[in-house]
Amino acid sequence: MSLDADDVAKIAHLARLEISQDNVAEYARNLSSILDLVEQMSAVSTEGVEPMAHPLSLAQRLRPDVVTETDQRDAFQHNGPQVEAGLYLVPKVIE
């Protein structure tokens, strides 16, 4: 599988990553070679094989519906790049 510059741009957009124009070719080359590696998967037929999402076949445990978290806004917002009136600020969102 070979990815070109356009593919890289599309994937980078979907992943919200800026890739500078100078680096696109290198990304395309590296990602293509990784995909070549990955494509060795097709050597084996997996028809009818159940996909495995977890190493252990256990069921989800349930938590009792109890509020135990307390307000830690100040501690959390200490890490915030831009905070005002308790809100996280981002560039204007246009709907």
Binding site: V8, I11, L14, A15, L31, I34, M41, V44, T46, P51
Partner: peptide, 26 residues
């Protein structure tokens, strides 16, 4: 991130992600 994004994206999920999960089983 880009490889993973690609492997999960529409049209590639079965060939990559699902296939990998099946191989994981094997």
């Amino acid at each position: 991130i880009m490889i993973g994004t690609y492997a999960l994206s529409a049209g590639y999920y079965d060939a990559y992600y699902l296939k990998a999960q099946q191989l994981r089983h094997l």
